[in-house]
Amino acid sequence: MSIELRIENLSKTYQNGVKALDNVSLTIRSGMYGLLGPNGAGKSTLMRTLATLQEPDSGTASLGGIDVLKQKDEVRRRLGYLPQEFGVYPRTSAQDMLSYIALLKGVAKAKERRALVAWMLKRVNLYDDRKKALTGFSGGMRQRFGIAQALIGDPQLLIVDEPTAGLDPGERNRFYNLLAEIGEQVIVILSTHIVDDVTDLCTNTAIINNGRVLYQGRPQDAIAQLNGRMWQISIAKAELASYEQRYQVVSSRLVGGRPLLHVYSASPLSEGFDPCAPNLEDVFFTKIRSWN
């Protein structure tokens, strides 16, 4: 029986007036769960709240039977968290730092800790550089260290916040392979604004904008909703403005120097439009602009 993370009516407004979370309610089961949204949507706020680092103004969250807001230590014992940005202590090696974090997570016995740290570093392919100072690591290496510290201790709830931003495609793939190896009883919440990540990896997704949940469910179901409603056309650059005025242009990408438009329309369109199979990006944009 897998554990469920239930979020109910979570709200938070920052001191400068920004409403980061607006009555967010989600139910997340084990497996990869994608949190999709543009920058400033509230993804990080939600992640930090679930990682016991932030207080919401109202609402509740529970992990199995544990109250996430009131029983923080219980959550932390089962938690693995990779923040969007993190730094490292200066003059500290990867091995020492990982060992310290493993200790903080509760791996008290030194021998066990040593073995676990070595295994984890091998797993993220940092073993050869384990004695070198973290401050000298490149972005990709640091991200690998980050996932290593998040995975240590066999967490039941793994929260990764924008993990692949700034990684090259090779690194990204390796990262996802790592995540894919995680056991099936673990809840993995992945936040990103890279739509393809969600399509490829996640069994369920939620689309968030301005602190509100616009969609939750399986990516395939969301895409299926748009069946027959997405159209594409290749136009000249000069025409772009007029098309944007006349139609609901979901996205515009340059292909061979000419804008290729994806247009949303419930009714069929002629005048050069071809029907196209919708993808998650289309879902994303249409939801954000409330056309769907």
Binding site: G106, V107, A108, N125, D129, G140, D154
Partner: peptide, 24 residues
Amino acid sequence: TQALESGAPPAITPAATAPYAQLA
């Protein structure tokens, strides 16, 4: 120090199970 970079893409370590570590 120069910023480190690992060279060629590494072979993925087979997903052996992690060594036992008791959490306390």
